[in-house]
């Protein structure tokens, strides 16, 4: 039942233009000299789009014969695609729950490693027109507020911080992912939104971030893992190792990701 639906959805997503759709042709085995070649298909959470792009650039400078093909998207959608048999070598998720979908299906090669953390931050349009100063302002019905729907990871994290702070939020819209919240803030349609620190940084001048102490109650963990069905194991392992290496960590640090 789930299978049919999920296939439909996966097909729909591909049609909808996942620009980095994975290459499906079999990748050649690494040669005896241990030089890495072929394509590594990486499925990664949408919030990793900028950093993983930079990491891939750095990685392919060291291994010019390797091609890293990305499929960025919502972690739960990616996990579903992997369970449905999408050809993938590496999976980096934005939450332990979504990773669990894949580990429960026994599709991983070893245990996932948490490589970064991400913390929620209040995002306001440049100039802070709503005069937002902290999490308590999210209960103000006069302000226009966007948060993630509780069904998606950023919404679950938002619920945790609100519950922990004893605040009843008065949102005007419950968005389907964190980038949609960010867009509403960038366009000035809302006075405040709850997004990740990395999103505030990525949005540049259009958005200002306001840190709040309650954020520490809902730190998001990002696990990465190699898949058992990988057809290019050596190159995939090298890519995962690079993400975990000091060089990879430097790129992730720059984007405001936290250290686990």
């Amino acid at each position: 039942m789930k299978r049919a639906l999920v296939t439909l959805v996966a097909a729909g997503l591909l049609l909808a233009g996942c620009s980095a759709a994975p290459a499906t042709q079999p990748t050649p085995e690494p040669t005896a000299e241990d030089t890495l070649t072929g394509t590594v298909n990486v499925f990664a959470a949408a919030s990793l789009t900028e950093t993983f792009g930079a990491i891939a650039d750095a990685f392919t400078k060291e291994h010019p014969d390797v091609n890293i093909a990305f499929n960025f998207g919502g972690s739960s959608a990616l996990a579903t695609q992997i369970v449905e048999g999408a050809p993938v070598d590496v999976f980096a998720a934005a939450s332990g729950t979504t990773m669990k979908t894949v580990t429960d299906a026994a599709l991983t090669d070893g245990e996932p490693t948490v490589f970064v953390t991400n913390t929620l931050e209040i995002a306001v349009p440049a100039g802070n027109p709503g005069g937002v100063s902290g999490l308590a302002d999210f209960a103000n019905p006069d302000l226009s507020i966007a948060i993630c729907a509780v069904e998606v990871p950023c919404g679950a994290a938002s619920k945790t911080v609100f519950d922990g702070a004893g605040i009843v939020a008065a949102p005007d819209t419950l968005e389907q992912d964190v980038k949609a919240v960010l867009t509403k803030v960038e366009l000035g349609e809302v006075d405040a939104g709850l997004v990740y620190k990395t999103d505030v940084l990525a949005a540049g001048d259009k958005v200002e971030g306001i840190e709040f102490s309650e954020a520490s109650t809902a730190v998001g963990k990002y696990p990465i893992v190699q898949l058992a069905a990988s057809t290019n194991k050596n190159a995939a392992a090298a890519f995962v190792a690079y993400v975990l290496s000091p060089a990879g960590k430097k790129i992730l640090d720059r984007a405001a990701f936290g250290t686990p």
């Binding site: 039942m1 999920v6 959805v9 729907a149 819209t173 419950l174």
Partner: peptide, 24 residues
């Protein structure tokens, strides 16, 4: 219009959100 139950969350939007947690 965004998505808020009873105000802007129409059936297709509710369907999409349900897909994240409860495909049935």
């Amino acid at each position: 219009a965004g998505s808020f139950p009873g105000v802007t969350q129409t059936l297709p939007i509710a369907t999409y959100l349900q897909l994240q947690t409860d495909p049935d």
